[in-house]
């Protein structure tokens, strides 16, 4: 071999550039969230006052309510969509071949493929036609729908990597289907279900466009509340709030990373 085929000149530099681009805006927001100044353009020393402001300031009521809405909606949407997606994954992966399998897969992936703004418009028109009241419930329903494919993908990927022999052995020992799922499949699928759940949770927490269309009176989620505030100026309290959300996301991704690690360790050996 005349040279290392895995190394290309400049790729390291571009990777560094990539990370630089990804992190600089976030770091700038983090740094400025500690700025003591009321006006964000001047630096007047380090302070935690904007973090205090997030919890006690004039907008704190609004943000608390929005955070509560966001969390309850994301949690409910993630639980429901993960349950539906787990059932669907078992049906698809362990249901044998059947006509309409690829159509079912297309249906499940539909919410990922349709642009968000289109989903938002279609859902609004639908709710308005059937006179479904716009409020927390309308947001929740919309979120469940678009969370299903995000929960489905990691769960079915995990299930595909599990040999059917475990369930077959259980069923040979006269375990019922529910018992087979509960005591055999579920523990092995666990990490996949957990990452599906986390993905659904964060996707729901992240959503702005669809929520903005289907939210009703007095119901704000964190993204819609932040959007409203940001338009009137990127104030330091928004930066503090953003930094808190950022840390929350990092905590979640770290959690899912370690769950994935544990999952790999638990993963039964595959035939190949």
């Amino acid at each position: 071999m005349t040279f290392d085929v895995r190394r290309y000149r400049g790729f390291f530099g571009l990777t560094m550039l990539c990370l630089f681009i990804l992190y600089v805006p976030l770091l700038v927001v983090m740094v400025y969230s500690f700025n003591d100044s009321r006006s964000i353009t001047n630096w007047e020393g380090v302070s935690l006052r904007w973090y205090v402001d997030v919890f006690t300031g004039p907008e704190s009521e609004k943000f608390k309510q929005a955070a509560w809405n966001s969390l309850t909606i994301a949690l409910s949407a993630a639980i429901v969509s993960t349950t539906i997606a787990t059932a669907a994954a078992i049906g698809m992966v362990r249901g044998g071949a059947f006509r309409g399998k690829s159509a079912t897969f297309a249906l499940i992936s539909l919410p990922i493929m349709v642009p968000e703004i289109v989903t938002a418009v279609a859902t609004l028109i639908f709710f308005s036609t059937i006179a479904f009241p716009l409020g927390t419930l309308s947001i929740l329903v919309a979120h469940i729908v678009f969370c299903i494919p995000f929960a489905y993908l990691p769960i079915s990927a995990r299930l595909q990597g599990i040999e059917a022999s475990y369930e077959e052995a259980a069923q040979d020992l006269y375990a019922g289907r529910w018992a087979t799922f509960r005591h055999v499949l579920f523990p092995i699928m666990g990490p996949g279900i957990m990452s599906g759940f986390l993905l659904a949770f964060i996707i729901s927490l992240d959503d702005f466009i669809i929520t903005n269309f289907v939210k009703g009176a007095g119901v704000e989620t964190l993204p819609t509340a932040i959007f409203g505030s940001v338009k009137q100026g990127i104030q330091p309290n928004i930066m503090a709030l953003s930094t808190l959300l950022l840390l929350f996301s990092i905590a979640l991704v770290t959690l899912s990373y370690f769950i994935g690690k544990r999952g790999e360790a638990l993963q039964p050996d595959r035939g190949d």
Partner: peptide
């Protein structure tokens, strides 16, 4: 593998129903 074939329809029903009703019909 088809260990859950007999209840396949029931397993897939919620996805069909929810996405069908709240996504396909709206579109």
């Amino acid at each position: 593998s088809a260990t859950f074939r007999p209840i396949r329809g029931w397993l897939l029903l919620p996805s069909w129903a929810i996405i069908g009703f709240f996504m396909v019909i709206p579109v």
